[in-house]
């Protein structure tokens, strides 16, 4: 049983683990429903972590460490492995050269950029000449819970008149214009968008749109218009109310000093 000898050997175990990890990250992960290919930077990061783990595994025990080094030692000195040695001596520098070439080669692709999806909001904005303080701001329409159904209905109408083409019928960012955009329109059903944000943040994004994004939000600026040019303050708040109402998310709330104190008391 030759294969068993290999399966028990730490060196081949290590090699097999690395190959398996690579296969899983690059080929298996994208197969999951709703998944996509893993960016190269992340593949590199994962593989480096696995490599460190494997090295720890083979060296945290003296006996295993000695056995692990046997094949390496043999490949370097044993006369019968001369072809292997020659192959390695060619392959390793070639590989290093290839990597170096890939790093310095010029390409026409735009350089990878970091685009912050939720950049820091200003503490106040000017809405049609009126100054609005965002810090601590909640949806003013929520002060009238009795008429919130009416506001939401208002918001629904405004949404379907203005937002539908991009953000879609299901509020999932899959409107019929959506595929043409980079970045794609926000998916409100996802727990990473409005569910993570305060209503004042959403108000800022709606009012100022793509042009109002700070530098972290570039270079692929969102195509979102500045809605302050088209909608009134109240209309924007009712759309926001509708978004939360329809998706069932709760806006992130401001932590007041009283609340924090209460929670500390609870612990």
């Amino acid at each position: 049983m030759n294969w068993r000898r290999y399966a028990d050997h730490p060196f081949w175990q290590a090699a097999a683990l690395l190959v398996a990890a690579y296969v899983v990250i690059v080929y298996v992960v994208p197969l999951f429903p709703g998944s996509a290919l893993v960016p190269k930077s992340v593949v590199l990061q994962y593989m480096a972590t696995v490599l460190v783990g494997v090295l720890i595994y083979v060296s945290d025990n003296e006996e295993r460490w000695i056995r692990f080094r046997e094949p390496i030692h043999a490949a370097l000195v044993e006369p019968r492995l001369r072809p292997v040695r020659a192959g390695l001596l060619v392959a390793v520098p070639a590989l290093v050269g290839l990597v170096a070439y890939g790093q310095v080669r010029t390409t026409v692709a735009a350089p990878p950029n970091l685009r912050s999806i939720h950049p820091a909001p200003p503490s106040e904005i000017t809405f049609r000449g009126k100054t609005i303080t965002l810090t601590g701001l909640d949806n003013p329409l929520r002060q009238h819970p009795e008429s919130s159904a009416a506001y939401a209905a208002d918001g629904k109408r405004i949404y379907y008149q203005n937002c539908l083409p991009c953000h879609g019928d299901h509020l999932d960012g899959q409107g019929h214009y959506a595929p043409g955009f980079n970045p794609i329109p926000a998916n409100f059903q996802d727990n990473g968008t409005i569910a993570q944000l305060t209503e004042s943040f959403v108000f800022w994004r709606v009012a100022k749109g793509g042009p109002g994004l700070p530098r972290e939000g570039t270079p692929w600026n969102s195509a979102m218009p500045r809605w302050e040019d088209f909608l009134t303050e109240r209309e924007i708040w009712s759309v926001i109310l509708f978004l939360y109402d329809q998706t069932g998310w709760k806006p992130r709330t401001w932590e007041t000093a009283g609340e924090a104190g209460k929670r500390k008391g609870d612990d």
Partner: peptide, 12 residues
């Protein structure tokens, strides 16, 4: 001979 990769600068 070039790709359309330039961002819209009037937004930035």
């Amino acid at each position: 001979g070039y790709q359309p990769i330039m961002p819209v600068m009037t937004k930035q």
